[in-house]
Amino acid sequence: MIEIAIEKELLGSHGKMPLHVTLSIEDKSFVALSGQSGSGKTTLLRILAGLENARGTIRVDGEEWLNEKYMLAPQQRGIGFVFQDYALFPNMSVIENLLFVRQDKALAQHLLKLIEMDELAQRKPNTLSGGQKQRVSLCRAMMNHPKLLLMDEPLSALDPLMRTKLQHEILTLHKEFETTTIMVSHDPSEIYRLSNRVIVLNQGNVIQDGDAKSVLLKTQGSQKFSFEGELLDIIKVDVIYVAIVSIGQQIVEVVLDESEARELHVGSVVNISTKAFAPVIQTSKR
């Protein structure tokens, strides 16, 4: 059980902003931390790791990590941290990176096997691809048998294919070690696949907290589906108007009437939903 009640003044995108978070996190859970950039996600993670100070308390399994007078050093917390830009030790080979944390050859080899990296054990980090680096970083974080695994957008620098592969590996590791995990992520499919709880931060405050489905699903009432997208353009074709909207990685067209066209503004975030038709789902030909 992790109990957090912290406060810290941050310099956000709109000047000073208080970070104010009160949370309790169950053992063995996988929490996704989401929210716009500058909302305080990374700072919260760094405060949990002991890399930044804050006012308040953090209690992990009855052990005080932070209170009004005392801050436990990051070295003594027994955590694993996966950085966005890998942060591997450049002078050490893959296996040395793991063994530097703890001299446990059996565990290091087991971890590398689990993510199919055992053949690259002697390679130096600068000869690895981004995905490989992040897998090593993940293994390194597990070497300490951490009480808490913290990941700061671990997959955001990787391509979609590698992302999916690593999501499976993160899941494999989480099932095997049952480490309580907090991961910062923006990717809804990633959050849905991995987490059993989503916390959304905005301007330093928790604005949503629940399971992935209830937080991420955008439909309301009897809507069959609903997408959020950016309105790129409105084009007049004969007597009707066509809105060009970017949703995810795709561009779609939606027919508008004149009054709708007048109300919508190019550049704004819009919701596209339907009620009447059942959507058709098919395997993509690609």
Binding site: G50, P74, F83, L88, F89
Partner: peptide, 29 residues
């Protein structure tokens, strides 16, 4: 020297002197 790499060493349980001798110094050899 990248701060994140030093921090990765701290959370691995190493103090700043150990980090300097085993990671920073060999990396900037």
């Amino acid at each position: 020297f990248p701060k994140a790499i030093r921090e990765a060493s701290y959370v691995s349980g190493k103090n700043s002197l150990q980090t300097f001798i085993w990671i920073v110094l060999p990396s900037i050899r």
